[in-house]
Amino acid sequence: MIRSRWMRLGVGAAMTVIMTNGMDRQRGHVFALLAFVTYGTVFALGAWPATGLWRLTRRHPAADVAIGGAFLALLLFFCLLLIPPLAWWAAALIAMSLGAVLVPVLKRLAMARSARRAA
């Protein structure tokens, strides 16, 4: 586990560049730009203190679902884009379908876990 916020940002920036470069070689500049924005945001949020994120999601449960769902669908989309014969529109449909199913399931699991802790 990396303890320094600057070190986490540095590792996140390096991983973002590596993933963007791979996406650029396989799918082109447009998808590489989308991957850069997505992975950069994910790694920047990873450098944020965990307590701050927990407080934000406790105060705004709708934001928790929206942010989680958006990033889950985007990350699924980029993972599916790494399969060369799969068209980009098919990857988008699969990612949106899986996101629509997984986000409510994960939210219910999280709510059940927090209810067990409170009880």
Rank of each mutant, 00 (worst) to 15 (best):
R113E: 14
A119S: 11
G12E: 13
L72K: 06
A112F: 11
R108A: 14
V11I: 15
F36D: 07
V105L: 13
D24A: 15
W54K: 14
A92G: 01
L80K: 02
G46E: 09
T16H: 01
T20R: 03
I67E: 01
V105F: 15
D24V: 09
A92M: 02
R113S: 13
A115W: 04
V101I: 15
Y39C: 13
P85R: 12
K107G: 06
K107T: 12
I2S: 09
I18L: 15
L34E: 08
A119T: 05
D24I: 12
A90Y: 01
A14C: 06
S114L: 15
P104A: 03
V42A: 05
G10L: 09
T41I: 04
A95Q: 03
A95E: 01
M15Y: 05
A73T: 02
F31G: 04
S97F: 07
A118T: 06
W54F: 09
I67N: 00
L72H: 05
A66C: 02
A44Q: 11
A112D: 15
R117W: 14
L56W: 06
F78Y: 12
N21G: 14
G52I: 08
R59M: 06
R55N: 15
F43S: 12
M23H: 02
G40P: 00
T16Q: 02
P61L: 00
L53K: 10
N21Q: 14
L93M: 08
R59F: 08
R58I: 07
V37S: 12
D64C: 02
M19I: 14
M19W: 15
V103C: 03
W54G: 11
G22D: 14
G46F: 04
P104R: 12
L86S: 07
S114Y: 13
T57N: 10
F71M: 06
V37P: 07
R8W: 09
Y39K: 08
G22M: 15
L80G: 02
G68H: 01
V103N: 03
D64S: 03
G99K: 01
L53T: 11
T57C: 11
V42K: 03
G12K: 10
A115E: 03
A118W: 02
L80H: 02
W54T: 11
A118Y: 04
V42G: 00
A50I: 15
A90E: 13
F78C: 04
A63F: 01
L74D: 09
V65I: 08
Y39P: 05
L86N: 12
L34R: 03
A66V: 00
F36I: 05
M15F: 10
A73G: 01
L76T: 04
W54Y: 10
